[in-house]
Design a protein around this nucleic acid. Structure first.
Lengths: 214, 214
DNA sequence: CCTTGTAATTGATCGAGATCAATAGCTCTC
DNA sequence: GAGAGCTATTGATCTCGATCAATTACAAGG
């Protein structure tokens, strides 16, 4: 496996693959954040995937993807040439089982995202997004309960709008509203402080706990 | 594989599994249509999956699902007890590879769905839904180009609304508008005639063709 | 035939978020 | 430090789809 891997770096804003382009590798994100975005003919855009470190990019047995892949921050990928990687899957059942698990997790995430897009209010969308980022950051550290949480937004307001199915103006307004209400505070444009994480969770519209015996 | 399979039938409207319930089987849809639905505490609902014949339900190595599964029409499932099925995956790499392919297809569908939910207008949503159903029906037959297409809606207006992130009133109004504009005609409430399928496609907001050299 | 119940249509009004527009804050560069 | 070029905030107004409400269309059952 190590024999066919190599690293690539992309700068923030750079396109990693264009929709319908040939893609001769699959990869896993080592560092940074990449987004998958679909665009309509008239320019309307919707983010359909957000890849954080350890997430997988690309599809075995398929040469193209149907969305643009863009580096939201500086990104480092660990790449594998696609054909050797496919051979690896054939010979090593463990790999395809692991890949299946990861894809199923991604599908679950996509389904929560669909609930967000279809039914949540703008304020709930923003809160949900902030808590997703906060949580993904927090897993690297260890999360104390009902504590202050701090992190940097990896996305611009415009990218957040594309993620949430909103306009950037609405994103900005709702961020200001959450700040005014003391749910978050901002240091600069991108650095977020959440004084009480549970308070933020209450704003997301999701069930308080994971659903185990409500 | 045949040794561990059995069939189950559900009537339209019946719940197949509740969110967070234990699910001791996985299954594939033989006949009918089932929906996966997520519900918020205050009752807002969003469909997050629509299972048509040949689609797969359930997740190996996980006892629960996080959404309700409901029979939209009468449904026949071909079930496999979960634990033997997991053993099958372990021993037969072909199965997990096939399952990976199916899951990746479902993820692609989920991503198009996200574009629909986040960025399309009500009219585009309805048109997209109708063309999805028409196409899934048409694969069973053989599809001539720019021809009349005919099919039955497997969903109520309310279920369509849950699919599309709309209210049932808006669904009804847009159906009437498409009828008024001659894009579709209705025989009864559920039977749809599309006189010109390309005309319907133009209403979806999607690119005219699959994206091969636009 | 008349009731009862569910699915669907249609109308009137309202409001959340989009759109249009101006301004502010930053970082770079010259 | 003035100007260009971003990103972000804030204001004013408009619109699409939601909400509230009444009516219609059936199908089932007494």
């Amino acid at each position: 496996m190590d024999a066919i891997k190599y690293y690539r770096r992309y700068e923030a804003g750079q396109t990693i693959v264009w929709a319908a382009d040939k893609m001769d590798f699959v990869a896993s994100v080592v560092d940074g954040v990449a987004s998958l975005t679909q665009t309509m003919e008239d320019g309307r855009r919707q983010m359909v995937g957000l890849l954080l470190p350890s997430d997988f990019l690309g599809r075995p047995n398929r040469e193209t993807v149907s969305y643009d892949v863009t580096a939201a921050t500086d990104v480092t990928l660990c790449c594998f040439r696609r054909v050797p990687f496919q051979d690896l899957i054939q010979s090593n059942p463990h790999v395809s089982q692991r890949l299946l698990e990861m894809t199923l997790d991604e599908l679950d995430a996509a389904r929560e995202w669909m609930l967000l897009l279809g039914r949540k209010t703008a304020r709930e969308k923003i809160s949900s997004f902030l808590s997703i980022i906060a949580r993904r950051d927090a897993t690297l550290n260890n999360l104390p309960k009902r504590a202050e949480v701090t992190f940097d937004l990896p996305l611009t307001r415009e990218a957040m709008a594309d993620y949430l199915g909103l306009t950037l103006e609405t994103v900005s307004r709702q961020m200001s509203a959450l700040k005014r209400d003391g749910v978050i505070s901002l240091k600069g444009k991108r650095h977020i402080v959440v004084p009480d994480f549970e308070r933020l969770m209450d704003e997301t519209g999701d069930d308080a706990d994971g659903g185990v015996l409500t």
